Computed example of a mutant assay.
Amino acid sequence: MADGDFEELDERFRSCVRRSEQVRTLYRGCRWAEGPVYVPAGRYLLWSDIPNNRVMRWDETDHSVSVFLQPANFANGQTLDRQGRAVRCEHGSRSVTRTEHDGSVTTLASHYRGKRLNSPNDVVVKSDGSIWFTDPTYGIDTDFEGFAATPEIGACHVYRVDARTGECEVVADDFVRPNGLAFAPDERRLYIVDSGVTHVRNGPRHIRVFDVSADRELSGGAVFASCQSGMFDGIRLDQSGRVWAGAADGVHCYDPDGTLLGKIKTGEPVANVEFGGPQRNHLFICATTSLYAIRLPVNGARKI
Protein backbone atom coordinates (compact mmCIF):
# COMPACT_ATOMS: atom_id res chain seq x y z
CA MET A 1 0.00 0.00 0.00
CA ALA A 2 1.45 3.37 -0.98
CA ASP A 3 0.14 6.90 -0.71
CA GLY A 4 1.66 10.36 -0.41
CA ASP A 5 4.81 10.48 1.63
CA PHE A 6 4.64 6.88 2.85
CA GLU A 7 4.94 3.37 1.46
CA GLU A 8 3.72 0.63 3.77
CA LEU A 9 5.27 -2.81 3.23
CA ASP A 10 4.35 -4.38 6.57
CA GLU A 11 1.40 -3.55 8.81
CA ARG A 12 3.79 -2.85 11.69
CA PHE A 13 4.80 0.33 9.85
CA ARG A 14 1.44 1.85 10.84
CA SER A 15 2.70 2.35 14.39
CA CYS A 16 5.83 4.13 13.10
CA VAL A 17 4.21 6.96 11.13
CA ARG A 18 1.05 9.03 11.14
CA ARG A 19 -0.78 9.45 7.86
CA SER A 20 -1.87 12.94 8.95
CA GLU A 21 1.76 14.07 9.00
CA GLN A 22 3.67 15.21 5.94
CA VAL A 23 7.33 15.56 5.10
CA ARG A 24 8.15 19.26 5.55
CA THR A 25 10.85 21.07 3.62
CA LEU A 26 13.03 23.11 5.99
CA TYR A 27 15.66 24.25 3.49
CA ARG A 28 16.69 23.91 -0.13
CA GLY A 29 19.99 24.96 -1.68
CA CYS A 30 22.61 22.38 -0.71
CA ARG A 31 24.85 20.50 -3.12
CA TRP A 32 25.08 17.39 -0.93
CA ALA A 33 23.37 17.55 2.46
CA GLU A 34 24.83 15.18 5.07
CA GLY A 35 25.80 14.66 8.70
CA PRO A 36 22.83 16.02 10.72
CA VAL A 37 23.15 16.39 14.49
CA TYR A 38 20.53 17.84 16.84
CA VAL A 39 21.82 20.04 19.67
CA PRO A 40 19.27 19.89 22.54
CA ALA A 41 20.90 22.64 24.60
CA GLY A 42 20.37 25.17 21.83
CA ARG A 43 17.32 23.63 20.14
CA TYR A 44 18.93 23.64 16.73
CA LEU A 45 20.10 21.21 14.09
CA LEU A 46 23.48 21.29 12.38
CA TRP A 47 24.13 19.56 9.09
CA SER A 48 26.92 19.42 6.53
CA ASP A 49 26.78 20.68 2.95
CA ILE A 50 29.97 18.92 1.96
CA PRO A 51 30.81 20.22 -1.57
CA ASN A 52 30.04 23.79 -0.46
CA ASN A 53 32.43 23.27 2.47
CA ARG A 54 30.04 24.52 5.11
CA VAL A 55 28.01 23.45 8.13
CA MET A 56 24.45 24.78 8.20
CA ARG A 57 22.19 25.57 11.18
CA TRP A 58 18.40 25.28 11.44
CA ASP A 59 16.88 26.98 14.49
CA GLU A 60 13.93 25.16 16.04
CA THR A 61 12.63 28.27 17.78
CA ASP A 62 12.10 30.44 14.70
CA HIS A 63 12.83 28.01 11.81
CA SER A 64 15.60 30.25 10.50
CA VAL A 65 18.53 28.82 8.54
CA SER A 66 22.04 30.23 8.61
CA VAL A 67 25.61 29.24 7.83
CA PHE A 68 27.13 27.96 11.07
CA LEU A 69 30.68 27.28 9.87
CA GLN A 70 32.49 28.03 6.60
CA PRO A 71 35.01 26.86 5.62
CA ALA A 72 34.40 23.64 7.49
CA ASN A 73 37.18 21.31 6.29
CA PHE A 74 34.55 19.57 4.15
CA ALA A 75 32.86 18.21 7.28
CA ASN A 76 30.66 15.14 6.91
CA GLY A 77 29.27 13.14 9.85
CA GLN A 78 28.70 14.87 13.19
CA THR A 79 27.58 13.88 16.66
CA LEU A 80 27.77 15.09 20.27
CA ASP A 81 29.83 13.59 23.07
CA ARG A 82 28.78 13.19 26.71
CA GLN A 83 29.73 16.81 27.44
CA GLY A 84 27.72 18.18 24.52
CA ARG A 85 30.79 18.91 22.40
CA ALA A 86 30.56 18.52 18.63
CA VAL A 87 32.57 15.63 17.19
CA ARG A 88 33.06 15.86 13.41
CA CYS A 89 34.45 13.81 10.56
CA GLU A 90 36.40 16.11 8.25
CA HIS A 91 37.25 15.13 4.70
CA GLY A 92 39.48 18.16 4.26
CA SER A 93 41.78 17.48 7.20
CA ARG A 94 41.27 13.69 6.94
CA SER A 95 40.59 13.60 10.64
CA VAL A 96 38.04 13.34 13.44
CA THR A 97 37.88 16.48 15.55
CA ARG A 98 36.12 17.76 18.66
CA THR A 99 35.07 21.37 19.15
CA GLU A 100 35.61 22.38 22.77
CA HIS A 101 33.25 24.65 24.70
CA ASP A 102 35.67 27.56 24.26
CA GLY A 103 35.61 27.10 20.47
CA SER A 104 39.04 25.52 20.15
CA VAL A 105 39.36 22.35 18.09
CA THR A 106 41.01 19.13 19.26
CA THR A 107 42.09 16.47 16.77
CA LEU A 108 41.01 13.05 18.03
CA ALA A 109 42.26 10.92 15.14
CA SER A 110 44.19 11.72 11.97
CA HIS A 111 46.60 8.79 11.50
CA TYR A 112 46.76 5.05 12.00
CA ARG A 113 50.20 3.54 12.53
CA GLY A 114 51.83 6.63 11.11
CA LYS A 115 49.71 6.81 7.96
CA ARG A 116 47.02 9.40 7.26
CA LEU A 117 43.41 8.31 7.44
CA ASN A 118 41.43 8.31 4.18
CA SER A 119 38.51 10.64 4.88
CA PRO A 120 36.50 9.92 8.06
CA ASN A 121 32.84 9.72 7.11
CA ASP A 122 30.48 9.10 10.03
CA VAL A 123 30.92 8.95 13.79
CA VAL A 124 29.15 7.84 16.97
CA VAL A 125 30.04 8.14 20.64
CA LYS A 126 29.48 5.19 22.99
CA SER A 127 28.35 5.77 26.56
CA ASP A 128 31.88 5.03 27.81
CA GLY A 129 33.13 8.04 25.83
CA SER A 130 34.86 6.06 23.09
CA ILE A 131 34.61 7.43 19.55
CA TRP A 132 33.70 5.03 16.72
CA PHE A 133 34.02 6.12 13.10
CA THR A 134 34.17 4.87 9.52
CA ASP A 135 36.92 5.77 7.06
CA PRO A 136 36.10 5.24 3.36
CA THR A 137 37.84 7.19 0.58
CA TYR A 138 35.00 9.41 -0.64
CA GLY A 139 36.69 12.62 0.49
CA ILE A 140 39.95 11.89 -1.35
CA ASP A 141 38.57 10.20 -4.47
CA THR A 142 38.08 13.61 -6.15
CA ASP A 143 38.06 17.29 -5.28
CA PHE A 144 34.24 17.32 -5.04
CA GLU A 145 33.97 16.48 -1.31
CA GLY A 146 37.51 17.27 -0.20
CA PHE A 147 40.96 17.07 -1.75
CA ALA A 148 41.94 14.33 -4.18
CA ALA A 149 44.79 12.25 -2.78
CA THR A 150 46.30 8.78 -2.83
CA PRO A 151 45.23 6.58 0.10
CA GLU A 152 48.09 5.87 2.49
CA ILE A 153 46.55 3.03 4.50
CA GLY A 154 45.38 1.16 1.41
CA ALA A 155 42.11 -0.06 2.93
CA CYS A 156 38.88 1.27 4.45
CA HIS A 157 38.32 0.37 8.09
CA VAL A 158 36.10 1.07 11.07
CA TYR A 159 37.98 2.56 14.02
CA ARG A 160 37.56 3.24 17.73
CA VAL A 161 39.29 6.00 19.69
CA ASP A 162 39.74 5.08 23.36
CA ALA A 163 38.30 7.75 25.64
CA ARG A 164 41.04 7.36 28.24
CA THR A 165 44.19 6.83 26.18
CA GLY A 166 43.22 8.46 22.87
CA GLU A 167 44.54 5.39 21.04
CA CYS A 168 43.01 4.79 17.61
CA GLU A 169 42.55 1.14 16.69
CA VAL A 170 40.80 -0.88 13.98
CA VAL A 171 37.64 -2.66 15.11
CA ALA A 172 36.51 -3.96 11.68
CA ASP A 173 38.70 -4.47 8.62
CA ASP A 174 36.54 -6.39 6.15
CA PHE A 175 34.56 -3.56 4.56
CA VAL A 176 34.77 -2.23 1.02
CA ARG A 177 33.49 1.26 1.89
CA PRO A 178 32.22 1.53 5.49
CA ASN A 179 29.73 4.37 5.81
CA GLY A 180 26.96 5.15 8.32
CA LEU A 181 26.96 3.49 11.73
CA ALA A 182 24.80 3.44 14.85
CA PHE A 183 24.55 1.56 18.14
CA ALA A 184 21.44 -0.27 19.28
CA PRO A 185 19.77 1.39 22.30
CA ASP A 186 21.46 -1.04 24.71
CA GLU A 187 24.80 -0.74 22.85
CA ARG A 188 25.04 -4.51 22.56
CA ARG A 189 24.88 -4.30 18.77
CA LEU A 190 26.52 -2.00 16.26
CA TYR A 191 25.03 -1.49 12.79
CA ILE A 192 27.42 -0.45 10.00
CA VAL A 193 26.65 0.35 6.37
CA ASP A 194 28.89 -0.88 3.56
CA SER A 195 28.32 1.21 0.41
CA GLY A 196 31.10 -0.47 -1.55
CA VAL A 197 28.93 -0.68 -4.67
CA THR A 198 30.22 2.81 -5.46
CA HIS A 199 33.66 1.33 -6.14
CA VAL A 200 33.16 -2.36 -6.88
CA ARG A 201 30.85 -3.79 -9.54
CA ASN A 202 28.01 -5.62 -7.79
CA GLY A 203 29.65 -4.59 -4.53
CA PRO A 204 27.96 -4.33 -1.13
CA ARG A 205 24.98 -2.06 -0.57
CA HIS A 206 23.92 -3.37 2.78
CA ILE A 207 23.84 -2.92 6.55
CA ARG A 208 25.77 -5.36 8.72
CA VAL A 209 25.16 -5.94 12.42
CA PHE A 210 27.84 -6.80 14.97
CA ASP A 211 27.68 -7.94 18.57
CA VAL A 212 29.59 -5.68 20.96
CA SER A 213 31.28 -7.46 23.88
CA ALA A 214 31.83 -6.03 27.34
CA ASP A 215 35.44 -5.25 26.37
CA ARG A 216 34.20 -3.47 23.20
CA GLU A 217 35.25 -6.12 20.72
CA LEU A 218 33.07 -6.77 17.67
CA SER A 219 31.92 -10.19 16.52
CA GLY A 220 29.44 -11.50 14.00
CA GLY A 221 28.89 -9.01 11.19
CA ALA A 222 26.07 -10.74 9.32
CA VAL A 223 24.14 -8.79 6.71
CA PHE A 224 21.12 -7.23 8.42
CA ALA A 225 19.49 -5.71 5.33
CA SER A 226 20.32 -5.18 1.65
CA CYS A 227 19.24 -2.05 -0.20
CA GLN A 228 17.02 -2.47 -3.26
CA SER A 229 16.95 1.24 -4.09
CA GLY A 230 20.42 2.65 -4.68
CA MET A 231 22.45 2.10 -1.55
CA PHE A 232 22.27 2.80 2.16
CA ASP A 233 24.17 5.76 3.60
CA GLY A 234 23.51 7.17 7.08
CA ILE A 235 21.42 5.33 9.70
CA ARG A 236 19.79 5.98 13.07
CA LEU A 237 17.86 3.77 15.50
CA ASP A 238 14.73 4.54 17.48
CA GLN A 239 14.24 3.51 21.10
CA SER A 240 12.55 0.26 20.04
CA GLY A 241 15.59 -0.76 18.01
CA ARG A 242 14.16 -0.10 14.55
CA VAL A 243 16.71 1.01 11.97
CA TRP A 244 15.99 4.12 9.87
CA ALA A 245 18.26 4.24 6.83
CA GLY A 246 18.85 6.71 4.02
CA ALA A 247 18.42 5.28 0.50
CA ALA A 248 17.85 6.47 -3.06
CA ASP A 249 14.06 6.73 -2.77
CA GLY A 250 13.76 7.99 0.80
CA VAL A 251 14.12 6.67 4.33
CA HIS A 252 13.72 2.91 4.87
CA CYS A 253 12.46 1.64 8.23
CA TYR A 254 13.52 -1.82 9.37
CA ASP A 255 12.23 -3.85 12.28
CA PRO A 256 14.94 -5.30 14.57
CA ASP A 257 14.22 -8.67 12.94
CA GLY A 258 15.42 -7.25 9.60
CA THR A 259 11.99 -6.84 7.95
CA LEU A 260 11.57 -3.75 5.78
CA LEU A 261 8.45 -2.20 7.30
CA GLY A 262 8.01 0.81 5.04
CA LYS A 263 9.47 3.94 3.54
CA ILE A 264 9.22 7.70 3.92
CA LYS A 265 9.38 9.09 0.39
CA THR A 266 11.35 12.28 -0.24
CA GLY A 267 11.80 12.56 -4.01
CA GLU A 268 15.57 12.89 -3.53
CA PRO A 269 18.24 10.39 -2.51
CA VAL A 270 18.69 10.49 1.26
CA ALA A 271 22.20 10.68 2.69
CA ASN A 272 21.50 10.72 6.42
CA VAL A 273 18.88 11.14 9.13
CA GLU A 274 18.70 12.32 12.73
CA PHE A 275 16.14 12.15 15.54
CA GLY A 276 15.69 15.46 17.33
CA GLY A 277 13.30 17.85 18.98
CA PRO A 278 12.52 18.00 22.73
CA GLN A 279 11.02 14.49 22.64
CA ARG A 280 13.35 13.08 19.96
CA ASN A 281 10.34 12.36 17.75
CA HIS A 282 11.23 14.63 14.84
CA LEU A 283 13.09 12.83 12.07
CA PHE A 284 15.38 15.23 10.22
CA ILE A 285 16.32 14.07 6.73
CA CYS A 286 19.31 15.23 4.70
CA ALA A 287 18.42 14.49 1.07
CA THR A 288 20.81 15.73 -1.62
CA THR A 289 19.85 19.42 -2.00
CA SER A 290 17.40 19.69 0.89
CA LEU A 291 16.73 19.36 4.60
CA TYR A 292 13.38 17.78 5.46
CA ALA A 293 11.63 16.85 8.69
CA ILE A 294 8.64 14.83 9.80
CA ARG A 295 7.13 14.24 13.23
CA LEU A 296 6.76 10.55 14.11
CA PRO A 297 4.91 8.61 16.82
CA VAL A 298 8.24 7.01 17.80
CA ASN A 299 11.25 8.40 19.63
CA GLY A 300 14.88 8.21 18.65
CA ALA A 301 17.26 6.18 20.77
CA ARG A 302 19.37 8.15 23.20
CA LYS A 303 22.88 8.31 21.75
CA ILE A 304 24.77 8.28 25.03
Rank of each mutant, 00 (worst) to 15 (best):
A33S: 15
A184G: 08
R216C: 10
V17E: 09
R54G: 03
P51M: 12
K263G: 02
L218F: 02
V55E: 12
V55N: 07
I153C: 12
G77P: 06
N179E: 07
R98Q: 11
D186P: 13
A109E: 08
H199P: 00
A172S: 03
H63R: 12
S240C: 03
E21N: 15
Y44C: 10
L26R: 14
E90F: 03
R28E: 14
V176N: 01
H157M: 12
V65D: 07
V193K: 01
D59T: 09
L260G: 08
R82H: 09
A271V: 01
F232I: 07
R242I: 04
E60T: 01
H91A: 03
E8C: 15
S95E: 04
V251G: 03
R116G: 11
V17Q: 10
G166C: 05
R82M: 13
W244E: 02
H91W: 08
G103T: 10
T106M: 10
P269I: 13
G42N: 14
Y38G: 08
A182R: 07
T142W: 00
L26E: 11
V171E: 10
H252V: 02
P256H: 09
S127C: 06
P36L: 10
R160K: 06
K265Q: 12
F224Y: 03
H111W: 00
G84N: 01
R85H: 00
S95W: 03
K115A: 13
D59N: 13
A41W: 07
S195L: 10
I131Y: 00
L296H: 05
D215V: 02
A225K: 05
N202Q: 15
E21T: 11
D238Y: 05
E100V: 03
T99N: 06
F13M: 06
W47R: 08
R164S: 14
D59L: 08
R205T: 08
Y138V: 07
S290W: 01
D141G: 01
E187D: 10
I294T: 09
R88M: 15
D233F: 05
V243F: 11
A225C: 01
F68N: 01
T79Y: 02
E274P: 04
I285R: 14
F74T: 08
A225I: 01
R280N: 13
G29F: 02
R236N: 12
K263P: 00
A75Q: 07
D49A: 14
V67Y: 00
M56A: 07
A109Y: 11
E274H: 12
A287E: 07
C30Y: 00
N121L: 13
V270A: 06
Y191W: 11
L45E: 05
R14S: 13
Y254T: 11
D257I: 04
V124R: 14
A225E: 00
R18T: 12
G180Q: 02
